[in-house]
Simulated scan of single mutants.
Amino acid sequence: MNAWHFVTRFGEAQILLPAALLVGLLLASRPEGRPAASRWLAGLVLATGLTTLTKIAFIGWGIGSASLNFTGVSGHSMYASAIYPVLLAACAELLLGRGRMAAALLGAVIALVVGVSRLAVDAHSVSEVIAGFVVGGAVSLAVLFAEHWHTPRLQRWLQGGALAAMALWLFGATSYAPPSPTHALVTRIALRLSGHEHPYTRAQLLHTLREPLDLPTARL
């Protein structure tokens, strides 16, 4: 596994969602943290639905944009930008009681690196990565700038143990977990819904740009 393939794993749903769930449970364990946890969960559900719909639309029916080289929102970029800023902001306040926005900015940088990795491994186009960053970033902003952002004060052993478990999970799963099956699952759903035997591909989409225009010859 080269460096970019390792980095891109930090955007996989199967790796990020359990970490987000753990921190979300920490936030929701006290009443003052529940608004932020609820808003984060709702945002993740909506962003996941939107991202999945764009993928199904293309795989099943070929709905995309050849000029933008767009076949669907990048799920890795979306999850990274929706989770890392909030994840690190929550960790900063749980552990230090301050530094929320600085930690969120670091999370955004990590998400940006994950997006670059999707380009480096030739998994997505620029437009797809940007779309993922925008959709996920909207989720983070909706949480971080909510009127009632609160992180509960928990016992130190609970905070430290849970956050250590989260860190171990992120790095351990990134190194040893099997590849994510989400793309294959979405493909099966798209084919079942569309009734087609084969998925549409990026090559088919871009072929429309390479076809010569069939224009009538001008009379001189």
Rank of each mutant, 00 (worst) to 15 (best):
M1K: 07
W4E: 07
H5R: 15
H5M: 09
G11R: 12
E12T: 06
E12R: 11
E12P: 10
Q14H: 11
L17Q: 02
L17P: 02
L17I: 15
P18F: 07
A19T: 03
A20H: 08
L22I: 13
V23C: 10
L25P: 00
L26D: 05
L26Q: 06
A28D: 07
A28T: 03
A28R: 11
S29G: 10
R30Q: 15
E32Y: 02
E32N: 05
G33E: 03
R34I: 03
A36V: 11
R39C: 14
W40T: 14
L44C: 15
L44H: 07
L44Q: 12
L44V: 09
A47T: 02
A47V: 01
T48F: 13
A57Y: 08
F58Y: 03
F58K: 04
I59T: 09
G60A: 08
G60P: 11
I63W: 14
I63T: 04
G64Q: 08
S65M: 06
S65W: 08
S65Y: 06
S65R: 10
S67A: 05
S67P: 00
S67R: 08
L68D: 01
L68C: 01
N69G: 09
N69D: 14
F70T: 05
V73F: 10
S74I: 10
G75P: 07
H76S: 02
H76M: 07
S77E: 03
M78P: 09
Y79S: 11
A82L: 12
I83D: 08
V86Q: 09
V86I: 13
A90Q: 10
A90Y: 14
A92E: 09
L95F: 04
G97A: 05
G97E: 05
R98T: 11
G99I: 09
M101W: 14
A102V: 02
A102Y: 02
L105A: 15
L105Y: 07
A111T: 07
L112Q: 02
V113C: 10
V114D: 01
G115K: 03
V116W: 15
V116I: 15
R118K: 01
L119F: 06
L119P: 06
V121I: 15
V121E: 10
D122M: 14
H124A: 11
S125L: 05
S127C: 03
S127G: 07
G132Y: 06
G137H: 04
V139D: 12
V139M: 13
L141C: 08
A142I: 04
E147C: 00
P152K: 14
P152W: 13
Q155M: 12
R156D: 06
R156S: 11
L158Q: 13
L158I: 14
Q159I: 15
Q159P: 04
G161F: 03
A167D: 04
L168R: 08
L170F: 12
A173K: 10
T174G: 15
S175T: 14
S175D: 02
A177Q: 14
S180A: 01
P181F: 05
P181D: 04
H183F: 14
L185C: 00
T187C: 02
R192Q: 03
L193D: 02
H196T: 01
T201E: 00
T201W: 04
R202F: 08
R202V: 07
R202Q: 15
A203W: 05
A203C: 00
L205K: 11
H207V: 00
T208C: 07
E211H: 12
P212Y: 12
P216H: 09
A218Y: 08
A218F: 11
L220H: 13
